[in-house]
């Protein structure tokens, strides 16, 4: 796929902006893993890369190959679909495993019982 030089300037600029933006957002998410104080907070950080980060990169990819008319733009849609469906499975598994462990070991990171439901 050595087609990049054929990309018109406007498309090249847009594509690179989108890809860099996506990579930057994913980087912020990874930085969050270091900066956030506890396990449950850290769970929120990787979603940045899985949602807006991937989204920007996929739109950039769609734009690039759409302008080049290289192929249909279905792969990106499938990637987005699979990521959206599979990421929550991992996240929920991690959250529940950690909650279970914290409760069994009596750690203070997790509440011993569910807090009372918020009344509206």
């Amino acid at each position: 796929m050595n087609a990049a030089p054929d990309l018109p300037l406007w498309a090249a600029i847009l594509v690179s902006l989108l890809v860099v933006a996506g990579a930057a957002i994913t980087l912020v998410g990874s930085v969050g893993l270091v900066r956030l104080p506890d396990f449950y907070s850290r769970l929120h950080a990787p979603s940045l890369g899985a949602t807006l980060g991937t989204g920007c990169i996929l739109i950039g990819s769609m734009l690039c190959f759409g302008v080049l008319r290289d192929r249909l733009l279905i792969h990106e849609a499938l990637i987005a679909l699979f990521l959206t469906i599979t990421t929550p499975v991992t996240m929920m598994l991690l959250a529940r495993a950690s909650l279970y462990r914290d409760r069994v070991e009596g750690n203070r990171a997790a509440p011993e019982h569910d807090p009372e439901p918020t009344e509206l």
Binding site: G29, L43, H44, S47, L48, T51, M92, A95, D114
Partner: peptide, 22 residues
């Protein structure tokens, strides 16, 4: 809930109909 950064689904209790979120 899980895809939105900032909210994390932790546990749903079907008997009480309550959802534990972080």
């Amino acid at each position: 809930m899980t895809c939105t950064p900032g909210t994390q689904w932790v546990h749903y209790d079907p008997a009480r109909g309550t959802l534990l979120l972080h």
